[in-house]
C-alpha cells in the first residue's frame, strides 16, 4: 500500500492515486482532490459526492454512473458536464472511493 501527502495530510492511495481508506476522506480532502483534476466543486457536485459516500457505506461498492443518475434523478449527460471526460473515475476519485472495476 502506498501513501502520499495532500495538504499536509498523509493518506493511503493505490497506484493511480485513489484513496484506499475511505475513513481518511473528508470534505476538505474532496476539495483538494477535485482541484488536482481542475474541478471547482459547487452544490451539484456535492450532492453527487454525498450520495457516493452514503451509497458506498451501505453497499460496500462504488455506485455506477447509472445508479447515481437514477437515484439522484440527474441526467447522465449532466454527470459528464460536472466531471468531464471520465465521470465514473473522477467521481470515485474525488469521493475517496475505489475506482469502478471489471472482473479481469
Amino acid at each position: 500500500m502506498s501513501t502520499t501527502t495532500i495538504d499536509g495530510r498523509t493518506i493511503h492511495v493505490d497506484q493511480e492515486g485513489f484513496l484506499t481508506e475511505p475513513a481518511e476522506w473528508d470534505e476538505d480532502m474532496a476539495r483538494s482532490l477535485s482541484a488536482l483534476l481542475g474541478i471547482e466543486l459547487d452544490e451539484r457536485h456535492w450532492k453527487i459526492l454525498r450520495f457516493l459516500r452514503a451509497d458506498h457505506a451501505s453497499t460496500g461498492e462504488t455506485p455506477t454512473l447509472r445508479r447515481v443518475s437514477t437515484s439522484l434523478q440527474v441526467p447522465m449527460k449532466e454527470l459528464f458536464q460536472l466531471f468531464p471526460t471520465k465521470p465514473a473515475k473522477k467521481m470515485a476519485y474525488v469521493a475517496g472511493l475505489p475506482k469502478p472495476r471489471g472482473c479481469v
Binding site: 502520499t4 501527502t5 497506484q15 492515486g17 476519485y93
Partner: peptide, 18 residues
C-alpha cells in the same frame, strides 16, 4: 505486494490522474 514508498513519491503526475 507493492513496496511501501515514501510519502509524496507515488502520487501520480497530473496527466495520469483520472
Amino acid at each position: 505486494p507493492m513496496n511501501h514508498t515514501e510519502p509524496g513519491t507515488t502520487f501520480p503526475e497530473k496527466e495520469q490522474l483520472p
